[in-house]
Amino acid sequence: MLEIKALSKKFGDKFAVANVTLSVREGAFVGIIGRSGAGKSTLLRAINRLNDASTGHVFWKGESITSLKGQKLGAWRSRCAMIFQQFNLVGRLDVLTNVLMGRLNHTPSWRALTNLWTSHDRAIALSALAQFDIAALASQRAEELSGGQQQRVAIARALVQEPELVLADEPIASLDPRNTKVVMDALQRINRHFGLTVLSNLHSLDLARSYCDRLVGMAQGRVVFDGAPRELTDAAARELYGIEASEVLAPEPASAPEHNSVPALA
């Protein structure tokens, strides 16, 4: 059970996240939606402490996350995997080594530094890649893969961490429509098949509705909506997205202006 209590993050005198309180039960697939700049990313990064919150607390199964330091913090990050918008893989290393990064906290240091992983670790990594049909790419450099493939490698890396919680920060923002479906299916798979709790930032309302069982809407650092996808009304969506709401909900092309002020067209 993830509990966020009165979390706030200030950059200068602007609040990126303002007094957010949230509870997520295990096994849920939560979609966090809102415009860019609404604070979704900051909130997620406060959970695995890539950014530290200014005030407030985060608890996982009763244990305080916000006060962790050193080795314990590393151990928490290992249990709380993150998937990034730009994949954040090491381009020049091969795919398998990238996935093995997820085993860093389960392996003695000397093995990691000399790149001499146990066959068990390699087996786990290969199996994780096979889950997403990319085991054949294991020896290729990560930078040679397409966006969709790279994101699947990132998800495999997250999987081998054997995490309890998976945070996905705009996982499909850099992908084309076909790969979007592939990656969202992968996230759904790890949620349903392995029972992992998934928190995902999404800017596409349609995707959030179809994949998530709970939606949390943020605007200007605050939570303005929290409920099932079917409860998201037009009015609520408008509050989240402002005037762009109509574009997000009903993609009709805008009609040409009434007046023609350009002489040539008269």
């Binding site: 390699r122 786990i124 290969l126 199996s127 890649l129 096979a130 020896s139 999987l159 392995f194």
Partner: peptide, 17 residues
């Protein structure tokens, strides 16, 4: 997590790598 594939499926992947 039960991620590991059975040895028969794993062997060719490992060998290729």
């Amino acid at each position: 997590l039960q991620i590991l594939l059975p040895a028969a499926q794993l062997a060719p992947l490992d060998a290729a790598y």
